[in-house]
Design a protein around this nucleic acid. Structure first.
Lengths: 159, 159
DNA sequence: ATAATGTTGATCTGATTAGTCGGGTATATT
DNA sequence: AATATACCCGACTAATCAGATCAACATTAT
């Protein structure tokens, strides 16, 4: 249940593209790398994946760079996550609905489906336009109102 | 965002313990391994971790085995996940509230906190008593009512 | 031309995951 | 006391993945 460095980098790069001024201007990979403190060569690989998935376009040469291939309000975090990390939620290699745990453990299948729904309820609702504007959609922002959201749970192996 | 084999195995093992008849009877590791099709030696390691975390107890010898150290309705999936896999949601090694992305990408921090809230809303609500009984708590079961919950999203890299 | 830039494929290292193995220790039954 | 049963522990391994680097090549604005 961890967010990979790749996804974090790719998402931040996409936000840089969404926030470019003027809108749609090609942004150089090195510019993103510097502003977001991402290893430049590694970022280039991620941008290449996003380009193959047709979420961004690129141009080379003197005035080259990357720009969004799709309007920012039509690209969700889930879209980026699926390109970079594969399916949102899978149970050791299987899609949850394919997964068939034996006997009394059968209901874990429903559990993992519920987890997937919960993840989708955030990742498919938030677009990079939202993130570039700094305003999350109402349903997601509501999750952050509970002060408990900001509190880390104690490590079970200490104390 | 994947569920590790270890967590899947550990959770299924805990459900076997919760479902043991009569309740509280010591269940042998090999019995769990066979019923749940889990590699026996590997399972033993997971059970040892759960024992060190004081979620299960064990006894050796002829009538030995494992049993829950805590009532089944007081052990959530999140408890097991934290023992086996560490923190529920972290952003490439950091806890989301520690994570401080630069510049225009700053709102991704709120995003990852929202993801953590969403995960907690399922994993901290479902107990192994629920799973052993085959009935998820109302708030979680509600997530499964949307038929869309059961439908897999198309792979972005095909067609 | 040439300098700036993106593209591709190969490679590398360290960590993690998913296991296996051998030998030891405790305990209930006989 | 002997024995069968079962947990305990540390080391080991093989495969995969994450994260990153590099060299060489292709394209384009000036």
């Amino acid at each position: 249940m961890r967010v990979s460095a790749s996804l974090d980098y790719a998402l931040r790069a996409m936000i840089e593209l969404a926030a470019a001024t003027p809108p749609g201007r090609p942004v150089k990979a090195d510019e993103i790398a510097e502003r977001q403190a991402i290893p430049a060569r590694f970022l280039a690989q991620l941008l290449a994946e996003l380009r193959r998935a047709e979420l961004v376009s690129s141009g080379r040469g003197y005035a080259g760079g990357y720009w969004l291939a799709v309007p920012a309000d039509q690209i969700t975090v889930a879209d980026i996550a699926r390109v970079i990390d594969g399916p949102l939620a899978d149970v050791h290699g299987m899609s949850p609905e394919v997964f068939g745990p034996p006997g009394v453990a059968a209901p874990t299948r429903e559990l993992w489906i519920a987890v997937r729904v919960a993840l989708r309820s955030v990742l498919e609702k938030v677009t990079i336009a939202d993130l570039a504007a700094g305003t999350l959609p109402p349903g997601v922002a509501a999750l952050l109102e509970d002060p408990d959201a900001w509190i880390r749970r104690p490590d079970p192996m200490r104390g």
